[in-house]
């Protein structure tokens, strides 16, 4: 088992390395001088060059690359050009927010998806099945940003029930702990819903298929034949086994969610990495862009790793080879 895990971890390393290299070179080929963010044009070009040197932009590209690689490996991600501070510092403020959002979206996705899957599988062919299927098709085909806007329009602007954006109320810092959690929770409902609901539709479909397959297997028939109640048959025997392949979805849905987070965070002004990345791209903040991409890449790779390991743990049929 350990060997399997370490093998998987090792194989993730070149993946990550390639990912970073690609990002680095794409970014450095971009037009647009980041130093202009710092200084005005009346500053002597010579001093502009000094600044460029201080930021490490004056070296030839390969040298920059090696320097940057060294920095990255030692956890030194450099200075953000646009925010005048260390990248690690900014990331430390934003990553938790994104993790919070995606984690709950993931939970929401799986809970809703599994429920949908069970209902549609058990009631297959019924009106409920069709209605759920059609609804999920529509949800799945919706642009996330549009769904977000529509919810803001309906729920926040018209009904005024939930906050339209941000992560907490301005005074959240001075709230008591439970009040604080409640405040964040309220802000989180809409973005989590938007982020999770589309994947939930997909998960539901997958779950339906998986459950249908299991239900037709011999052991379930045996259980039925034994005269067990339908609830027990499904809940105890079928569901457990049907859930196993769902685990692989965990790894698959992560890149999807992180990409979606870019949009959802922008729509809801959620102070996370997605929004940060957009800001960074617009201001040509190289170190920040690279760091954001790296973090999202790591999250995806880790997610896949966790999914694989979980799968291996749950399903004894998998060989650790």
């Amino acid at each position: 088992m350990l060997r399997y895990i370490s093998r998987r971890v090792l194989s993730a390393v070149p993946l990550l390395f390639g990912l970073l290299t690609i990002t680095f070179f794409i970014i450095r080929l971009a037009p647009g001088d980041p130093v202009s963010l710092y200084i005005q044009s009346d500053v002597d070009p010579q001093y502009a060059n000094n600044l460029r040197e201080a930021l490490g932009l004056a070296d030839p590209l390969p040298v920059q690359y090696v320097k940057w690689l060294k920095g990255t490996l030692t956890g030194e991600l450099g200075m953000s050009f646009s925010k005048h501070t260390e990248v690690t510092r900014i990331l430390a403020q934003t990553i938790p927010n994104t993790i919070l959002l995606t984690f709950f979206a993931l939970c929401f996705n799986f809970i809703l998806g599994i429920i949908i899957g069970i209902i549609t599988a058990l009631k297959r062919g019924s009106a409920v099945d069709h209605a759920v299927n059609i609804t999920s098709l529509f949800v799945y085909s919706m642009p996330e940003f549009w769904l977000g806007l529509m919810l803001i329009l309906g729920v926040s602007l018209h009904l005024g029930i939930l906050p339209a954006s941000g992560m907490h109320a301005p005074m959240a810092k001075y709230l008591s702990m439970p009040e604080y959690v409640w405040d964040v929770f309220k802000h989180m409902i809409l973005p989590v819903f938007v982020l999770g609901v589309a994947s939930a539709a997909a998960t539901g479909r997958y779950m339906r298929g998986s459950l249908l397959e299991v239900i037709n297997q011999d052991y379930v028939r045996t259980a039925r034949a034994k005269g067990l109640s339908e609830f027990l048959v499904i809940g105890k025997h079928a569901l457990r086994n049907a859930l196993i392949p769902i685990i692989t979805l965990l790894g698959l849905s992560l890149p999807f969610l992180l990409g979606g987070a870019v949009i959802v965070e922008t729509v809801f002004s959620w102070p996370g990495m997605g929004k940060l990345t957009i800001d960074a791209i617009f201001s040509r903040d190289y170190p920040l862009i690279i760091a954001c991409t790296m973090v999202s890449g790591v999250m995806v790779i880790l997610g896949n790793l966790v999914a694989d390991v979980l799968y291996a743990l749950v399903d004894p049929r998998i060989r650790y080879e």
Partner: peptide, 10 residues
């Protein structure tokens, strides 16, 4: 994008 615009204007 604003950054690029102002830089090129200047």
């Amino acid at each position: 994008e604003p950054v690029v615009l102002y830089q090129n204007i200047e």
